[in-house]
Amino acid sequence: MNIQNNLYSENTQAVLLLSTFFSKPKKGEARPLTAVEYGRFARWLHEFNYTPSSLFHQFDEVLSRWKDPKGKITAARLSEILGRKAAMGLALEKWQRAGVWVITRQDSEYPQLLKKQLRHISPPVFFGVGNKALLQKGGLAVIGSRGIDNIDEEFTQNIVIQAAQESINIVSGAARGVDETAMLASLNSGGTATGIMADSLLKAATASKWRKHLQNEQLVLISSFYPEAGFSVGNAMARNKYIYTAANAALVVRADEGKGGTWAGAKENNENQWVPLFVKQQSEASGNIALLARGAHPFELKKDSGLWLAEALSKVQVVKTSSPPSHSLNLFE
């Protein structure tokens, strides 16, 4: 039961208690802080020379000074979520047996590209399995709809095989469709992949399709949601920003205008100008057409052999969505 004391510092324990579910939430119980709430509270703690673990020893002092401008982070709420140490111990012990580890924003293994882009709204905690070193590798985010045809599947596989040949890490969401196709094609070609999951990390840790690649240290799977979390649309939408900001550039294979996670994520990336956005040009998908009209870079697969992908990706900058291009930019002709 004391595994959290053996493996994790007091500060990490405090961050976990403040920000994480340890089981399916029950009606009426206090909810852990959201990423935005935690960011607001953590900034205040730092400003007044406290740490999250100060709440274990100086709770009354801290709360006598803290006044949440939003009125959401109350003493009663903090007291209840900090009182879940037994639940945390049981959960951590179970997850650790499956190889799941924990990193917080203060840890050097935390994905630094993501942290630099999102700053105070970066997730306070990531749970993960696999090779932590890949979290610093950046790479190409490859994303798209769950429902894809043979043409999109072949396109995804071909571009990812090229990426593997150039040692470009693939970042994606591990969902069926484009995401899973991209990750498995990279791994099966000897490349690497970072999967940023919205749910079911614990199941993925032992899934046969990932197991070999985890053992070979080609793969890391992470989630900002507790490892047994089921699917929710809200979590999937929140996860989109982590896929983009953990990469150096992004490629949308297929999107539907106005709906779905792929469209929402691409739109959010353009609004925040996180990374250059490429979109598969030879597509009749409504989202692809709309994103290209909004300034995304048209992407064509180059048929010539050689190392061309990294150079092509590095030639472009983020384009503001308010300024669509006056001409077609095709880097792969």
Rank of each mutant, 00 (worst) to 15 (best):
T192V: 02
P69K: 03
Q4C: 13
K315I: 15
V36A: 13
P227Y: 04
K203D: 12
F225Q: 06
Y226M: 12
N2W: 00
K203G: 13
I289Q: 04
S322D: 09
D149V: 04
G190F: 15
P324H: 07
F127I: 12
L33F: 03
T74A: 12
L329Y: 11
K315E: 14
L184H: 00
R84E: 05
V171L: 02
G287L: 05
S286P: 01
S64C: 12
A133V: 07
E228S: 14
I161K: 01
E153I: 03
A163N: 08
D199K: 12
G71Y: 02
Q136T: 15
L45S: 00
E109T: 13
A249R: 00
N6C: 13
D199Y: 02
A163W: 05
E284W: 10
N240R: 10
E166Q: 14
E154D: 13
F21V: 11
V15S: 10
A75Y: 00
V36I: 06
L219Y: 01
I161E: 00
E61N: 11
S322K: 03
G147P: 11
S172P: 04
A266E: 06
F332V: 10
V160L: 07
S186V: 09
R40C: 08
G191Y: 03
E154S: 15
I73Y: 02
M88D: 07
S108N: 11
L301F: 15
S167G: 12
I3H: 03
R239S: 15
V160N: 11
S286V: 10
S200K: 03
T262Q: 03
S200V: 07
L92P: 01
S122P: 04
V36M: 06
G128Y: 15
V102Y: 12
R294W: 15
